[in-house]
Design a protein around this nucleic acid. Structure first.
Lengths: 115, 115
DNA sequence: GTGGTATATAATCAGTGGGTTATATAACCA
DNA sequence: TGGTTATATAACCCACTGATTATATACCAC
């Protein structure tokens, strides 16, 4: 399995901002226009448009046209790729893992779990 | 379930850099010193030290002392938190989901999947 | 056409990020 | 004590980010 580095860069960078994460959370409920997305935030409309552009550039949302509105839709594939990358490390927070150097220590020791 | 926003900020920001992701990948194999981590990169030692500081500040690694060396160890908990956050969206890339507005369209339409 | 609404773009600004080189600190060794 | 190794810190540079305000564009309705 091989991950496109620049795609992961863009995805994680997009997710690093709480406004953008909130926008994605909102879009998980259904498509929304720029103004609808901007409403909950104490932030100007151009600021939201910039965040949307970042999300779009990372492939996390797509946009259509609907008269004057440009509704946003969540596009989950890059989220899946990012999750896959993180899944590599699942063993590390689930406890059932053995690091290489722990293994070597164990092999060197007369018996495991002994000082 | 509630996620600490600032922790997610730090985690995703740390993961947005390919050098830092490579450092984590290396540390998944076992603990390593700064120089060992720096070796594969065409980058100065202070640059690597800065990346390490970012990872440490995000709680993704911990450090011990071993004579002159300051070995790094992967700390997976924040990776788990980030993965949990992303898992919220799993339904979106696995296909078996229905957006609220799709549902409404379907209810309005005489029959589903009809133009 | 005019006017209103929705969104995008331009210009600007302060702050941050990722890199550099040079230097300082800390621990070991002879 | 002096020398070597490992790492951290300081000072600096340039590019990028996230915000602003002001203005432009696109579409609709009358």
């Amino acid at each position: 399995m091989s991950y496109s580095s620049s795609q992961l860069n863009a995805t994680f960078a997009a997710l690093a901002d709480p406004t953008r994460r909130a926008i994605l959370t909102r879009l998980a409920q259904g498509d929304a226009s720029v103004n609808e997305l901007a409403f909950p935030f104490a932030m100007s409309q151009p600021a939201i448009s910039k965040h949307i552009k970042v999300l779009e550039h990372a492939g996390l949302i797509s946009r259509t046209r609907e008269s004057q509105r440009r509704p946003c839709r969540i596009e989950a594939k890059p989220l899946g790729v990012a999750t896959e990358w993180l899944e590599q490390y699942r063993q590390f927070w689930e406890g059932n893992f053995l690091r290489l150097d722990d293994l070597l220590d164990e092999m060197k020791a007369p018996r495991p779990n002994q000082p």
